[in-house]
Amino acid sequence: MKKVYSANNLMEAQIVLDLLEHAYIPAQLFNQHAQSGMGEIPFTHAYPEVWVMRDADYERGKLVIEAYEKAPVATGTVHCPACGEENPANFQLCWKCGGGLEVALHQDHIRN
């Protein structure tokens, strides 16, 4: 196992975990409850961490995370092609069903 990401908060860590799993990279979240210990332990030790399960997936995982960090911030909404739920345009995965939104976002731009 290798640590691939340290997040600023639990929501960001969960997004990265979901993106990795969507890319078929098994990963695990650590320190999800450590922020309650802030003050007793160094704050850098309380950040949520995402670790890839297989060392061979480390480089590919870093590429997935790099793409996530470089993605432009989009405004507006997009409808999930899987369940039809409305999502913020900057989401890559549907908040309701976890389906990919890249295709829906692309189709919405073509229509506009």
Rank of each mutant, 00 (worst) to 15 (best):
P81G: 01
D108Y: 00
V103L: 07
S36Q: 07
N112P: 04
E85K: 10
A71E: 09
H33W: 05
L93K: 02
A34M: 15
T75D: 11
E86R: 11
E86K: 11
H106C: 00
E12K: 05
D57T: 09
K96T: 07
Q107P: 00
A13E: 04
F91L: 11
G98T: 07
G37P: 01
V73I: 11
T77N: 15
L17V: 10
G39N: 08
L10M: 01
C80W: 02
N8P: 02
P72K: 11
G37C: 06
A74D: 04
H33S: 14
E21K: 12
G76P: 00
A46Y: 04
M38R: 14
K62A: 13
A74Y: 04
K70Q: 14
L93W: 00
L10R: 14
V50S: 07
A104H: 00
V73C: 03
Q14G: 08
C94E: 04
P81W: 03
A46E: 06
C83L: 08
E49G: 04
R60W: 01
W95H: 14
P88T: 09
P72G: 07
C83M: 02
C83I: 06
S36F: 12
A27F: 09
P72Q: 07
A74Q: 06
T75H: 15
L10Q: 09
I25Y: 05
K62L: 14
M1I: 07
G37D: 13
L101I: 05
S6K: 02
M11K: 15
H109Y: 06
Q32E: 15
D108A: 05
F43M: 12
A67M: 08
E49Q: 14
N87P: 01
H45W: 12
G98Y: 09
R111A: 08
L19D: 01
E49H: 06
M11D: 14
C80N: 09
Y68G: 13
D108P: 00
V52D: 02
L17E: 03
I25G: 05
K3A: 03
N90F: 06
I25E: 02
R111L: 06
D57N: 12
A13Y: 05
N31Q: 12
W95A: 06
W95I: 02
G84R: 08
K70I: 02
D57G: 10
E59Q: 14
P26H: 10
P81V: 02
A74I: 01
E102Y: 09
T44R: 09
P42R: 05
D108L: 01
K70F: 04
N31W: 08
Q92I: 05
L10P: 03
W51K: 11
Q107F: 03
H106W: 05
D108T: 00
E66Q: 15
E86N: 06
A46D: 11
P48C: 08
E85W: 05
Q32Y: 03
I25R: 04
N8F: 06
V50W: 12
L93N: 04
G84S: 07
L105R: 00
H79S: 14
R54D: 13
M11Y: 13
V52N: 11
A27P: 00
A7R: 02
E40P: 00
P48F: 01
A27N: 12
A56F: 12
H109D: 08
Q35K: 12
E102Q: 14
W51Y: 08
G98P: 00
I15N: 03
